[in-house]
Amino acid sequence: MAIAVLRFPGTNNEQDIIRVLKGIQGADPYLVPSRQGPTALQEADGVVIPGGFSYGDYLRAGAVASVGDIMEGVKELIDEGKPVLGICNGFQVLAESGHLPGALLTNESARFICKWVYLKVSEHTNRFTQGLENAIIRVPIAHAEGNYFCSNDILDKLVSENQIAFRYCDKEGNISDENNPNGSIMNIAGIVNEQQNVMGMMPHPERASRIAIGSRDGILILENFVRETVC
């Protein structure tokens, strides 16, 4: 199915995503530079907003991209129930545009962090995590603003509505402060919206797509995403 991979000025993970998606049966990824505007999304069955540094992270990471024209097209697809996945900077864009609750603040260390981490997948799976309930997966992170923050009210709702998809953990799946890389509330690494068709995650599943590069756990998430574009 047709999967639009957005590229804002400063996005730099779009080729990685396209390469991995091409290897998944049924996926027909195509690049959409943001200047093409919402019409370029008319044929899309799903959207990936990849990582990078859209607009140089000026203002706040994801803020300028979140008010771009193209996001009107993304909103339409979201309203139609099509799956939208935001990875890293893509998560920041989705949070800034209000499609996902909360905000991604500067890491607690105030540093850019690039390393492999373990994630615990929620037992309550969603369209993106089917078949992965309670799984411990290994994927890399690379960000300076991945410190997930939200009000207590929103947090209560994320928990009660099963919107938390991934939490940082250790190899055994223990979730604690020691294995929280960036200071996120409740070790949150990824969430879905209420309708469960929009997911944002700071870790990079596309960088965990081959054993040769350290893990292929990420591809399971992307395969789910592709399958959902068919529905």
């Binding site: 203002l59 008010v67 905000a103």
Partner: peptide, 9 residues
């Protein structure tokens, strides 16, 4: 509200 600040934080 929309751009210059993130009212959440």
């Amino acid at each position: 509200m929309k751009l210059l600040s993130n009212p959440i934080a």
